[in-house]
Amino acid sequence: MSTPLLRLAGIRKRYGAVEALSGVDLDVHAGEVVAVVGDNGAGKSTLIRVASGAHAPSEGHIEVEGRRVGFASPLDALNAGVATIYQDLALAARQPIWQNVFIGAERTRRLLPGIAVLDKRRMRREARDFLARLKIDMADTNRPVESLSGGQRQAVAIARALRWNARLVIMDEPTAALGVAESRQVLDLIRELHRGGTTVILISHNMADVVAVATRVAVLKNGRKIADRPVEGLSADDLAHLVMIGQLPQKAA
């Protein structure tokens, strides 16, 4: 098999006396949508914090395309092409869409020698284009993020990841706070990302979501990975069984 885009190798993470992760391996290949599932306290969030650069692992290492990397911060991960979309989305609610998409990597144009100003027109247009890639039609990117629906906000956060040229997007419980219609919109966003060639790691509690969009699923339990298999052929119930009991129901096994 080819070199994985992201490899988490033997990741352990201890918080004081508590071991949240006890040696987890996870390979994510380009173009996959890998769901990471597990009960509360299984270690999903910790794994994501390590992969996103927010926390350093106590043991183990991370490879991006076969090269060992040390993420000292989420910014390091971003620069390596790994963008994380946090549960709270990390958006500035009162600021316009285009600013939220471009914050930290603004486009400027030269006004006078030595004086660069924001190229707002270009950023508005490009923000619109990024959203269009996600099949979100947003004519006015001057609108503040707070005026958007939950699904649209998720799209703005993803557009920011695309703007970073992220090859891997980690989404932490993207549908957790959303209603049915908005959740469906977010699942569509993930399908669009997948179609566009972006690799996705999806953390979720919702087995129906996982079955709907993921290509592979890794199940965590008590800080260990107890299953890692293609989603194909699994139902949401099978998956729930796997998460809770640790094995598939007899009929599917």
Binding site: A90, L91, A92, Q95, Q99, I103, G104, A105, L118
Partner: peptide
């Protein structure tokens, strides 16, 4: 209103965690 620096100032005030995660 016109400079990167200014936008970074505004974002720092509006959502400093979001700004920091984006490299501000």
């Amino acid at each position: 209103k016109q400079t990167r620096l200014g936008l970074h100032l505004v974002f720092t005030g509006e959502a400093d965690e979001a700004a920091r995660l984006a490299g501000v």
